[in-house]
Design a protein around this nucleic acid. Structure first.
Length: 436
RNA sequence: GUGGCCGUAGCUCAGCUGGUUAGAGCGCCGGACUGUGGCUCCGGAGGUCGGGGGUUCAAAUCCCCUCGGUCACCCCA
């Protein structure tokens, strides 16, 4: 016997407890149902890929964040840090076998070697859906509509999907003569909510923008109006003089019209000039989902349009638009708010084991009740009745059933504490259905 | 990669300016009482005070190092 091994998980990695896992699976199913209702089908890709495939163009931020190492055969491999790059490789590799427009969704864990903090882990689950091989407002609107439906189906209250368009942002940059400083300017704008007007102004000055340009850029986020039409009109006044800005405003206006036509409430999807998104491959519409109630958690996901998904792997031009739900973060945020959809335990049953003797009758009872549609578990050992009941209580089971030595079934509603006696499994099922 | 805070029983924490056998609540185990849980009562197990070094007659308590956790920045889900 050596020293005992300390049971622990790696920094940034976490276990999922039964209640949370149950809630997560319920969420999976809800998300999948929405995606599939729009004609999207599931795919999977390997967690581990060649590093060069995932790395793409080097020198990015993702470089430092990727878990990469040599495998046993000396190959440079890495864990995927998102589901979009694997999608690009997948589409490029299988383009002859796919029907375009290609709609797929993908749910799975991704890994990033960042320093963990609130709502941020080194392993987390993303739910992505993308529409590849189509351009225009109809495609963009479809993703936005579906995205709103997902949060609706998850029962998330008060979510807001804030939408902008990279072309509008580029118009702003052009109008102020700062196209060269796109990255720092967009990054600063994206922090509008967090650091406020003065904070953004400071960042812009630090980025070396001339005072006139700083003022010009600052006029932008504040232009949001009472509704999307007003905001779009204001945006048009600011960037309408540039071709790209004009195109962006027109496109976003058309997209929002289609989203409304699909029946999405205006409160759920709103135009917001401060949404920029960090990833540099977005070229058109961009959006981000947030829970106003989940302060300090960051966004619950986002997405946008990209002109050319797989240019690294193929000459075929593959434009697309997609969305992503950060399921792990969403789960933790909802859990913290005590809003985890509790898996309905209304049909859970324990059939006790006789304290001494033969469990045959109990096993038969359990099987019969199971056929009635209940979630039935049997106690596997002849422990004392009190202990068995305690177990049922701790696990949160709703009912306990015991076969009486003289025949018949004695039941108890663990929630109300009421007992009942019935003739057989069918009688127990009726009684439990009545109480559930 | 940079900075702040924290590290005492399974969990949440008390242990003031260093001083006899390190405590509480909850949880856990056993028992009493209800045939069969949740309430109450009784009893019990469980701690290298994160680790290492130093100061001191004496450290969980002071100093240094280290490891771990956490929050923020960066970036993002």
């Amino acid at each position: 016997m050596g020293a005992r091994i300390e049971p622990r998980t790696l920094k940034g990695f976490r276990d999922t407890m039964p209640a949370e896992a149950a809630a997560r699976n319920t969420m999976f199913r809800a998300i999948e149902a929405v995606f599939e209702s729009f004609g999207y089908g599931p795919i999977d890709t390997p967690a581990l890929e060649y590093e060069e495939v995932l790395r793409g163009k080097g020198g990015d931020e993702s470089d430092k964040q990727m878990f990469a190492f040599d495998d046993q055969g000396g190959r440079r491999v890495a864990l995927r840090f998102d589901l979009t790059v694997p999608l690009a490789r997948f589409v490029a590799e299988h383009q002859n076998a796919l029907a375009f427009p290609f709609r797929r969704y993908h749910i799975g864990p991704v890994w990033r070697g960042e320093r963990p903090q609130k709502g941020r882990y080194r392993e987390f689950v993303q739910c992505d859906a993308d529409l590849i091989g189509a351009v225009g407002p109809a495609a963009d609107a479809e993703i936005l509509t579906m995205y709103a439906r997902v949060f609706g189906a998850l029962g998330v209250e008060g979510f807001v999907i804030r939408v902008n368009d990279r072309r509008i942002l580029n118009g702003l940059l052009e109008a102020n003569g700062v196209l060269e400083q796109a990255a720092p300017v967009l990054r600063a704008l994206d922090k509008w909510d967090k650091v406020g007007r003065e904070g953004v102004a400071q960042e812009l000055r630090d980025a070396g923008l001339p005072p006139a340009a700083v003022e010009g850029v600052l006029a932008f986020p504040g232009c949001a109006g009472a509704d999307d039409a007003a905001t779009l009109a204001a945006l048009e006044r600011i960037v309408g003089a540039t071709a790209r800005g004009r195109e962006g405003v027109d496109g976003l206006r058309a997209t929002m019209r289609l989203v409304a036509a699909a029946g999405v409430p205006a409160a759920q999807v709103r135009v917001d000039p401060t949404i920029a998104r960090g990833l540099d491959y977005y070229t058109g519409v961009v959006f981000e989902a947030a829970l106003p109630s989940a302060t300090g958690f960051g966004s619950m996901g986002g997405g946008g349009r990209y002109d050319d998904l797989a240019s690294l792997y193929t000459n075929t031009k593959l434009p697309g638009v997609g969305c992503s739900v950060g399921l792990t973060r969403l789960l933790v945020a909802l859990e913290e708010q005590g809003k985890l959809a509790s898996a309905a335990a209304a049909r859970s049953v324990l059939v006790t084991h006789p304290e001494s003797g033969d469990p045959t009758a109990s096993i038969a009872l359990a099987a019969a009740v199971r056929r009635e549609g209940f979630l039935v578990e049997t106690f596997p050992e002849p422990k004392k009745h009190g202990a068995q009941m305690k177990f049922a209580d701790k696990k949160g089971l709703r009912f306990a059933l015991t076969v009486e030595p003289a025949g018949g079934v004695h039941g108890k509603d663990l929630r109300t504490g009421e007992a009942f006696d019935v003739r057989d499994a069918a009688g127990a099922a009726d009684e439990m259905r009545r109480r559930a």
